[in-house]
Each structure stands twice: as C-alpha cells, then as structure tokens.
C-alpha cells in the first residue's frame, strides 16, 4: 500500500527525528511511503486565527500533494484533525474541491490510529527502560478519537511501563497562537499539566503532538525540571534517538 507521510510543519522545522521515526515505523510494516517534498503546512494557523483565505490556499495545496496515495498518515492529532474535521467546512465555499476533500478525509489517519487499526502492528522496534506517562492532546482525543491506540502500542514496547497521570485529557494550554498571544494564561494552564506529569514520577512524558510537546517541555525546563524527558510517541515506538536528545 502507498502511504503518504505528511510530517507537519512543526516536525519539519523543529524536530525532524519524529518524521523519520514515523517513516521507519511505516516502512518496517511494509508500507511504500511517499513523502511529497513540497509539503509545508496544513493551514491550521490561518484557519484558527480567522484568516480563512490563507487557510484555503494551503488546504488546496495539501489536496494536490497526496493524490497517488492510498492513505495519508500524520504524526499529529492536531493536523490530521484539521484535515478530517475542518477541511469540509473550510472548503465548503469551494464547490469544485468537494470531491477531493471527501477523497482526502476518507484516507487521512493519525499515526498511532493507523498503526493500531489499519496496520494492526503486533511488534514495535523500540525499547525503553523506565516509566512514561501519556498526555492526550486535545485534537487527537476529541477530533480523532485517539486514546487507546497509543497506549496499546506503548504496551508493546519492551521495558516500558505506563503510569497514568490524574487528568491526562486536560488541555496543556498550547492552543497554537494562543500560547503567544496569551502566554501568561497558557503558562498557568501548563503548570497544572506539569504538576500532574511530575507527580507520576515518570521518566518521560510521551504524547502525539509536537505543539503540546514544545509547550510542556518548555515550561518544565523553565521550572528547572531537566530530568523529565518529553518524547513523541513515534520516537518511543521506533526506538529512535530524538534530535539533540
């Protein structure tokens, strides 16, 4: 099967290792992975900031980039949620795009959902020694229904022990441009997440969205916590070394 990999703009710019981990997981499972080199951004920043026209331009660009694929897989609940739940509304006033949108949303998957429910992965290459706790990022959870999939996959990682925090579904306070426009509120919300993570005593926080990762890791470090590692679920499953980690 031909699987298009959309790494997302944040992974591309900030932490390519996540993209390579996703690539490895898909290739190991026997997928033919196609990585369009023109890929940039799904348009979410514009969409959530009211710049509908800009978001439409980027959405139509994405529509054109994965035409030869059977599936489009994204290591982010937020960007896959953007395509699956918001492209139909975003492009509702572009009737000629309707068929393409339907085609794309039927093929779009969040990475762990795809690994667990389409590829039905039995084994994963990664190993880990220690405990981790998992944060359910909002869009993955509430738009894509990602909850049990990453946990089931992490359960297959030898040596890894999952210890749930008390409110894994609570928002971390990222919210895209919200984190910059209302940095004070965002950091305060994030403090509750940090407290929750630290209380588990886990060696690493694992999650599936880079935006939330940057937010929580940034706040943990500012609070002086240099110990708790913050890892993308793809990195853990693939057993790859994070950039700079």
């Amino acid at each position: 099967m031909r699987v298009g990999l959309f790494v997302t703009c944040l992974v591309d710019l900030m932490r390519p290792s996540i993209g390579f981990a996703a690539l490895q997981l898909l290739e190991d499972a026997g997928c033919e992975v196609i990585v369009p080199t023109t890929q940039t951004c799904c348009g979410q920043p514009g969409y959530n900031s009211g710049d509908r026209a800009a978001a439409q331009v980027l959405a139509r660009k994405v529509l054109g980039e994965f035409k030869e694929c059977d599936y489009v897989v994204i290591p982010s609940g937020s960007c896959s949620g953007m395509i699956k739940t918001h492209y139909p509304e975003l492009l509702s006033d572009v009737p000629q795009a309707r068929a393409e949108v339907e085609w794309l949303i039927a093929r779009t998957w969040e990475l762990t959902d795809f690994l667990a429910n389409v590829l039905k992965l039995e084994r994963v290459p990664g190993t880990f020694s220690g405990t981790v706790t998992y944060h359910d990022a909002c869009s993955g959870l509430r738009e894509m229904g990602v909850k049990s999939q990453p946990r089931a996959l992490l359960d297959k990682v030898p040596g890894l022990q999952l210890k749930e925090m008390s409110t894994p579904e609570q928002c971390c306070g990222f919210g895209g441009t919200f984190s910059v426009k209302y940095g004070d509120i965002s950091a305060r919300i994030c403090d509750q997440k940090c407290d929750d993570v630290v209380a588990t005593g886990a060696d690493a926080l694992v999650l599936g969205d880079l935006g939330c990762m940057l937010n929580i890791e940034g706040r943990l470090r500012r609070r002086g916590d240099m110990r708790t590692r913050v890892l993308h679920v793809a990195e853990v499953l693939a057993g790859s070394k994070p950039d700079g980690g």
């Binding site: 209302y182 940095g183 004070d184 940057l214 940034g218």
Partner: peptide, 25 residues
C-alpha cells in the same frame, strides 16, 4: 517581539538545525 509571549514564562526547545525535508532529500 511576539515570541516574547512564549518565552516570558517558558523556554522554547530549539529546532534541531536542519529541516526534515532537507534531511530526507
């Protein structure tokens, strides 16, 4: 500038130095 809204109370984990697209190519 606007980035100060982020860094006032948080660090920003730095990018790793090359983009995924570069490395992939």
């Amino acid at each position: 500038g606007a980035g100060g809204g982020w860094t006032a109370e948080r660090d920003l984990p730095a990018p790793s130095g090359k983009t995924f697209r570069e490395l992939y190519a």
